[in-house]
Design a protein around this nucleic acid. Structure first.
Lengths: 197, 197
DNA sequence: GACAGCCTAGGACGCTTGTCCTAGGATTCA
DNA sequence: TGAATCCTAGGACAAGCGTCCTAGGCTGTC
C-alpha cells in the first residue's frame, strides 16, 4: 500500500490533518510534535521519517489549505448563479463555521498573524490563502459590473470578515457575529443596487 | 531611590516597556526572558527579583496598556468637541500607527488572539483593553443620539478597525489601509447625518 | 566604620523542544 | 525460505526555556 489509493488515509495524511487542526486551535509555535504524535497515536521520534522538519510539516498543512480553499471556491462557483449569490456564500462561512470561529478566530488570519510575528519564511505561502479569496471575490465583483473598484471591494469584504472573526472570538459574542453578517449582506445588496443604475 | 519619583525610569519600568514592545513585535510566547534581558541590559536570572513568573510580567504589561489606553481616551475626550470628532480620533490611530500596524498588526487584537489559543488565564485582562475602547465608543454614539444601537455601532467600528489592521499587515498594503479609513469616515458621516433627521 | 536593605551577575535545576539515529517488526515479492 | 522495502518504537542529543538560588556589590543610615 505505498500509493495513496488506499481506502483509509495514509499516515502522512493523518499527520497533516491533525497538524492542520492543532495549528488552528493552539497556534503553530505552541503545537509540538508530541501533541501531533499523541493525536495520531504515533511515536514522537518517528516523525522524521514523514517530515524532515517542522517547517516541512507547516508547508504541507498550508498546501492542503490551499487545495481545500480552491475546492471550496469552485463549489461556490457552481452553487450561486449570480455573482452576488456567490459572495454571499463567502460571507456565510462566518455562520457555517461559527462555533470554531468563536473559539479560535479565523484560521487564515490567525496563522498569517502568528507567522508574521515569528518572521517565518512560510508567511508568503500562508498569505496565498488570503490571495485566493481576494482574487475570487474580485472576479465576482467584476462580474457584477464593478470593473473599476472590484479589488477594493474584494479587500473590503475580506477585511470586514476578518474583523468580525477577531472580535467575535475575543468577546465570545455570537450575537455580534450574526449582526455583522446581516450588515455585510445589506452592504452587498447596496452594491448590487448601485451597479444596476 | 526606592520610589518612582526618580527622574530616570526604574528598572522595573524599563522591563515592562521592553516586554510591552517585544510582546507586540514577536508575540508573548516566543518572547523569552533572554530577549527582554538583552533589551534592557540585564542578566537573565535576575528577572526573578522583579517578576516572580512570566505571567506576572504579562499582567504588568497589560495593566500598563490599560492605563495608557485610558489616558488616550481621556485625551481624545478633550481633543474633540463633537462625539463624531472623538470617534474620528479613534479611527485615526490606524493612520498614526500605520508603520507599526503594517508590520505587527493591532497590538490589542494580536495579543488576545494569541492568549486565546494558548488558553492563557490573562485573556480576560487582555480583553479588557478592547472593552475600554468599546465602552468609550458606545458613549460617543450615545452622545450622538444613537441611544438604541450605540453598542452595536461601537462594535462595528471596533470590528472594522481590526479587519483593516489584520489585512493591511498581511498584505503590507498601505493603500488599502488608507482606503478603508476613508470608507470608515464616510460611514461615520452617514451615521451623523442619519442622527440629525 | 559597621550594618542593613536594595539590586545585581552568574549559574544551576529540571523540563520540553526539534532533530536525528538505530534496531527491528511487518509486508511483499522472488 | 530469503531478501528487500516500508514503516515503526524508543531513546539519545544539544539547545533553549522558565524558574530559582547564592554570593556579592552598591548605597544610605547609625
Amino acid at each position: 500500500m505505498s500509493t495513496a489509493s488506499s481506502a483509509s488515509r495514509t499516515t502522512r495524511e493523518q499527520i497533516v490533518d491533525a497538524a492542520d487542526q492543532l495549528f488552528y486551535e493552539q497556534g503553530f509555535d505552541s503545537t509540538s510534535f508530541a501533541d501531533i504524535a499523541a493525536a495520531v497515536n504515533l511515536s514522537r521520534g518517528n516523525f522524521y521519517y514523514h517530515f524532515k522538519t517542522k517547517d516541512d510539516l507547516l508547508e504541507a498543512v498550508i498546501e492542503q489549505r490551499l487545495r481545500n480553499t480552491q475546492a471550496l471556491l469552485q463549489q461556490w462557483e457552481q452553487q450561486g448563479t449570480q455573482p452576488q449569490d456567490r459572495i454571499r456564500c463567502f460571507i456565510h462561512i462566518l455562520i457555517a463555521n461559527q462555533a470554531r470561529i468563536l473559539l479560535y478566530g479565523c484560521p487564515v488570519g490567525t496563522l498569517t498573524t502568528e507567522l508574521a510575528k515569528l518572521n517565518h519564511h512560510a508567511l508568503d505561502q500562508a498569505n496565498a490563502v488570503f490571495t485566493l479569496f481576494r482574487t475570487w471575490l474580485r472576479q465576482q465583483f467584476q462580474a457584477m459590473g464593478r470593473k473599476q473598484d472590484a479589488d477594493e471591494l474584494a479587500m473590503h469584504v475580506l477585511g470586514r470578515s476578518q474583523g468580525v472573526a477577531t472580535l467575535a472570538s475575543a468577546f465570545q459574542d455570537e450575537k455580534f457575529l450574526k449582526q455583522e453578517v446581516k450588515r455585510l449582506n445589506q452592504w452587498l445588496q447596496q452594491c448590487v443596487d448601485d451597479a444596476k443604475q
